[in-house]
Amino acid sequence: MPRFNQYQQPIGDALPDWQPVSQPPRVTVSGRYCRLEPLAIYHAEDLLAAYAQAADERDWTYLMSARPKDIAGCRTWIDQKVSDPSLVPVAIVDNRTEKAVGIACYMRIDTSNGVLELGHLTWSPLMQRTVLGTEALWLMLKTTFELGYRRCEWKCDSLNAPSRKAAERLGFRWEGTFRQMMARHNRNRDTDWLSIIDGEWSAIDRAIRQWLAPENFTADGQQIQRLEDLHRAV
């Protein structure tokens, strides 16, 4: 039912118990296939080797930075994220190899309103289109909503179809396109905005948990049910 104030103007739902939330903590969060560790300089060697698995730099086309060329450049790139007070960066470590294979950040963190964004997603070929990559993002989402955030955002270049597809596969909903939002690498960037809100998380969480379950994979690691189908079923 719509709510109205004393002037008979429609107003938003009441939040009588709302309190600001805390920033995501810089702690290790473990899953079955991977763990999220606070990003640190010592991850540089692993990450440089992981990104070098790619034959070219097409995975970096829509990112702000270029692929690090050497260990010094990788350490500088990591230090820029670690020292940025607006970011909470994590290294994604493969539990099987004990090697860091990618990074991600909590960013645009607004504790007063309970909103943050998952960004700076820099997957290496060692985690692209793997169960590990899905679990890493699920761990980040799980942390977000367990801390009491009301909204988690995902933004990408509107021409970056794989990024938007990855977000929608997880359960993010497209909200619109901000035209000419950025001028990056001497070119225009329109930005797609997607989100998950707290009222949607329970069903999304159930679907992702079902997809991640060992019984959803064959002996050779092939999925039995697609995540997209599990979202529709819950």
Rank of each mutant, 00 (worst) to 15 (best):
T76D: 15
I92N: 03
W154G: 02
I103L: 06
T122H: 00
A203L: 13
V131K: 13
I78E: 00
T144Y: 05
Q53V: 12
T130E: 01
I11K: 00
R150S: 13
P89W: 01
T191E: 08
R26D: 01
N5I: 07
W77K: 03
I103V: 12
A167T: 10
Q19R: 15
T144N: 02
F217D: 05
T28L: 04
S83D: 12
P85Q: 05
D70C: 12
T97K: 12
R75I: 05
R151Q: 12
P214K: 03
T61N: 04
A49L: 13
R189K: 07
P10C: 10
L126G: 01
M127N: 05
Q225P: 08
P68D: 09
D190E: 07
E175P: 07
F217P: 01
G171W: 04
Q23R: 11
A52T: 04
D205Y: 05
I92Y: 01
I204M: 13
G102F: 03
I71N: 04
M64E: 13
M1V: 14
K99R: 15
T134G: 02
I204D: 02
N5Y: 09
N216D: 12
S65Y: 06
A66H: 13
E45W: 04
G171M: 10
E45R: 08
C152G: 04
R3K: 09
R189F: 08
L227W: 12
I208W: 02
C34T: 05
Q225M: 14
A54C: 02
L147H: 04
C156N: 04
